[in-house]
Write a protein that binds this DNA or RNA. Structure first.
Lengths: 211, 211
DNA sequence: GGGTAAACGGAGGCGACCCTCCGTATCCTA
DNA sequence: TAGGATACGGAGGGTCGCCTCCGTTTACCC
């Protein structure tokens, strides 16, 4: 039995306003304000999301679902290099447009470290890198994790606010030129990381105390 | 007349613990906890910093002062290219090691948008870029602002926590290779920005509400 | 070492936010 | 369109963090 129509509308409205609120004021913004913005009473917030954590968890799941939409275009590109371009471009734009994501990821990992619904993408990204390196277009010393870190890096420019969104593609251009296989590239320092380590890292609670 | 020795010690201790606390828990972390961590009473926090905002402001000023230490090495490098490398490396490492900075910058800009003590560096960075481009080592289509954005981008990897600090230099290598002047670089899209716009942007409160 | 000024600590009043509760409104089915 | 079930709103009790206040302690000067 599906929920009443007003309940469906409020649920969607709350999720949508929560993205904007969390993006603007951080993940600990007052839920009373969320209620106000969504035009509902405080009680309605807690009827739909038992706690702030439940809301955060649902935002996380929504984000993972959105990720699936990108796969066909990125993996189906004509060349391996084009896949790399699309991977950085599409996901970078998506992260930049979802500035609430890093905090949400950290919070979810804090609540339940074993919850990793994004793991299914790892093999696909590995394959994408292998294909581009086999065709000789992507420098041989980068890993799939390096690319994922670059996506986060480019996406972090979303913190600057929507008025910056037209500009981040300049940095993307530099990064892509740095990824091309060509004579004279500088060898990458330090060993790369495994995906599991990357997950723990990108979901890390925050900087560990110094020393 | 200089303050009593215990007051000096507590002031320094509070600033140092505030960095760690804000890095771990965000800029709105409870000040009572700051007092506990610094081993002082709550009253002492407010004697040294009239409000949270005053503390944030002082952290900001401390950061700007730290910036001055980097100038001689970066600007005095033997070649323009080496200056570019040092600029990204030293400042990227510094930002990555100061994860409380972005929030502090935003808060200060919110409190007093006209406060811009970092403006003095702009001419120096412009000069650094001009020098490297004149010697033909830095691609001609990047601006000083692009480099500053790259510093922020690389520094954002500091959010991952200290255990990631050994790895971000891999991304730095890619970025530097992307900055080299060489045949076959991709033209930069969109026009670059002026420093004033960059300041407003990097100190922006957060994403503006969608459309 | 004694006196004074400076600084300290932490209890507690106050305000903000969390979340629940229940009388009221809305939706859906027949 | 009537009745029951579902969902809503917002007042309010409880908690937590902010910041002040003042009796006590510490540093400094002679």
């Amino acid at each position: 039995m599906s929920p009443r129509r007003d309940a469906q509308r409020n649920h969607a409205r709350l999720l949508s306003e929560a993205r904007r609120l969390f993006a603007e004021r951080g993940i600990d913004a007052p839920l009373d304000e969320l209620a106000t913005r969504a035009g509902v009473g405080a009680g309605t917030v807690y009827r739909h999301f038992a706690s702030r954590d439940a809301l955060v968890r649902e935002l996380y799941d929504t984000a993972v679902a959105e990720l699936h939409q990108f796969a066909p275009e990125i993996l189906g590109a004509e060349t391996g290099w084009r896949s790399v371009e699309l991977y950085l471009e599409r996901l970078g734009a998506w992260v930049a447009d979802s500035p609430f994501l890093p905090a949400v990821m950290r919070r979810v990992a804090e609540l339940d470290p074993s919850y990793r619904p994004g793991a299914e993408f790892e093999a696909a990204i590995d394959g994408l890198v292998a294909r581009a390196q086999a065709e000789g277009s992507l420098r041989a010393d980068v890993t799939a994790v390096d690319l994922s870190v670059l996506v986060d890096m480019l996406g972090s420019l979303g913190q600057y606010g929507r008025q910056y969104l037209p500009f981040w593609r300049r940095q993307l251009t530099i990064v892509l030129d740095g990824l091309r296989a060509r004579p004279g590239t500088t060898p990458m320092p330090v060993a790369g990381q495994a995906f599991a380590a990357f997950h723990d890292m990108s979901h890390a609670k925050g900087p560990r105390p110094a020393g």
